[in-house]
């Protein structure tokens, strides 16, 4: 469904000068500063997948999404989405993708939500009957009824996001780009957004590309993640493979010895054991030799794994 090869985007802008006559020099300079936002990125995404596209701020996530949606033209590389080149076949591509930018609404600020949805329906040539059916479904799924007639500028962030999601799937696109759809939302609103994404993916076989900084989103929604930083892909694969590490037993011992059963004391005075097989037996063996003051079990978690990858 999406095929990206050697995608590169370099932003170029005139060099800015400071100091005396800085503004004037900025105006007439022929020197440019270049910044590579996306650097030789390749991946392929199949129909029906929900993929988390992750990276720290400034990693190149949004730039990639903007190229995939046809907003930006890349410096190099090839992209095919539904067999089309997004920035060249912009209109045709637009009909087959839905986009939500969490940071910026695409609704008409001064009009009631329902009017925004009707305008979207017209722009995508959705026939009246299909529009009504679609709207009925979305009203239930997203609970739009309570604010359908409220001007968008008066909606809460959670309501606005639900409105934006409705606008993005109203014409039933087979592909959905969600750029930080849960940013700034409270726990309940986040939950509603996640449930909606799961439902859309399940019933419509909709392919979803999701960027987020909330790893709970990723754990709830994605089987696969693509990690990027400084414009380069660091990891592309199943989350399971990434977090496929043993659980760990963390103990704090009364005597704080240098070493216990081949494990040395860490900076915080604890001993950390990988758990292979029989946990009670391990605990029994330790407590036979030492007095245990505190004990906990750590699940391998995505956050620490990802932090580890960024730090590399």
């Amino acid at each position: 469904m999406i095929r990206v090869e050697g995608l590169t985007k370099v932003f170029r802008r005139p060099r800015t000068f400071s100091g005396p006559f800085g503004a004037l020099r900025t105006l007439v300079t022929r020197q440019y500063e270049e910044r590579t936002a996306v650097d030789d990125v390749s991946f392929a995404i199949d129909e029906g997948e929900v993929v988390g596209y992750l990276g720290p701020n400034g990693a190149g996530k949004s730039t990639t999404i903007k190229i995939l949606t046809g907003i930006l033209t890349p410096t190099a590389g090839t992209v095919r989405v539904n067999g089309m080149v997004p920035w060249r076949d912009r209109s045709a591509n637009a009909r087959r993708v839905g986009v939500v930018f969490g940071q910026r609404s695409q609704l008409w600020w001064d009009l009631p939500l329902i009017e925004s949805l009707r305008l979207v329906g017209s722009l995508y040539d959705v026939p009246a009957a299909r529009f009504d059916a679609s709207l009925r479904k979305l009203r239930d799924l997203l609970g739009l009824d309570e604010f359908l007639d409220t001007p968008v500028r008066q909606l809460s962030l959670g309501q606005r996001m639900r409105g934006d999601l409705a606008a993005a799937v109203l014409y039933e696109p087979p592909l959905l780009y969600l750029d930080e759809p849960t940013v700034g939302l409270d726990v309940l609103a986040k939950e509603a957004v996640r449930e909606f994404i799961v439902e859309t993916n399940r019933t419509g076989r909709t392919t979803v590309i999701l960027t987020t900084h909330d790893l709970a989103d990723v754990e709830a929604l994605c089987k696969r993640i693509i990690l990027i930083d400084h414009g380069k892909v660091l990891f592309d694969g199943a989350i399971d493979a990434l977090v496929d590490q043993p659980r760990r037993l963390v103990v704090l011992l009364e005597s704080a010895p240098e070493e216990v059963r081949g494990v040395s004391r860490d900076d915080e005075g604890r001993h950390v054991f990988d758990i292979h097989g029989d946990l009670p037996a391990l605990i029994a063996a330790i407590s036979a030799e030492h007095t245990i003051r505190d004990l906990s079990i750590e699940e391998p978690d995505l956050e620490s794994v990802i932090k580890g990858i960024y730090a590399r």
Binding site: I71, R90, A92, A94, L123, Y124
Partner: peptide
């Protein structure tokens, strides 16, 4: 303010 983006996301000139 980035509003121009949305004009590029919709199937109309």
């Amino acid at each position: 303010n980035g509003e121009f983006d949305r004009f590029l996301l919709r199937p109309l000139n």
